[in-house]
Amino acid sequence: MPILEVERVSHWFGGLQALKDVSLYADREILGLIGPNGAGKTTLFNIISGFLTPTHGKVIYLGKPVQHLPPHQIVRLGIARTFQIVKPFANLTVEENVLAGIGMPYYAQFRGLVAPYRTTANVHTASHLLELTDLQNYRNAPANRLPIGIQRRVEIARALAIKPKLLLLDEPAAGLVAKETLELANLIKNLHQQGINIILIEHNMRFAMSLCQRIVVLAQGEIIAQGQPIEIQANEKVINAYLGQE
């Protein structure tokens, strides 16, 4: 059984159909979701992570339908995400951003109201995540004063803090310089080896092709191709979609 199945999902924004009958699955892999602007990639992420309820269709996670759940409950099941337009907690430090993720199991409980968050164990876990994402030098920096590449890493560290089984990365390489992109690729591979399943939306084709084991291509709300990177690169529909030909 795949960890995630999207079954015939359609979504309308008013009169605009953003997704048309999209079905896909994600398993123990790094799955790439690519496609031209406006293809519906982020809409699909928003549906999987509960920020949108699909007009039609199901999202099955570990065998259970979850498309009706709000985002704060989806995340408790182990689906973490980052945002295309970064949303670090701007009023918190980098370390506090990660701690905010570590708090995930507490927020829904009464003990969350009364338990102090800065315990030795939590600070230790946060340090570990900061090292993993190479953020230890920015521990006490306010998250909103950092360059975009570092803010993206803060979001990844915060997402990892919830101990996800499935991690959705929305254009993690956008705005990164070449060196940072390489480091990001290594980080993603490392996370995958640790058993975290990853779906990533990417515009940087070389990045997606080198990193993903399988790729799903969306164009105008529909899946036009899926398969291994080498197949996708040779797929005429994909080439046409990207070059804007019919």
């Binding site: 992570s49 509960g50 920020f51 709000p70 985002p71 704060h72 995340v75 973490a80 995400r81 945002f83 949303k87 670090p88 907690f89 701007a90 009023n91 918190l92 506090e96 701690l99 905010a100 993720g101 708090g103 995930m104 507490y106 927020y107 003990r111 969350g112 109201l113 009364v114 338990a115 102090p116 968050y117 915060r158 997402a159 803090a161 919830i162």
Partner: peptide
């Protein structure tokens, strides 16, 4: 407390708060 941190997260961004 965690609730204090939760308040900070919704003050910052409700979507990001939901994501944790």
């Amino acid at each position: 407390t965690w609730s204090g941190l939760a308040f900070q997260t919704i003050r910052s961004d409700e979507d990001a708060a939901a994501s944790v």
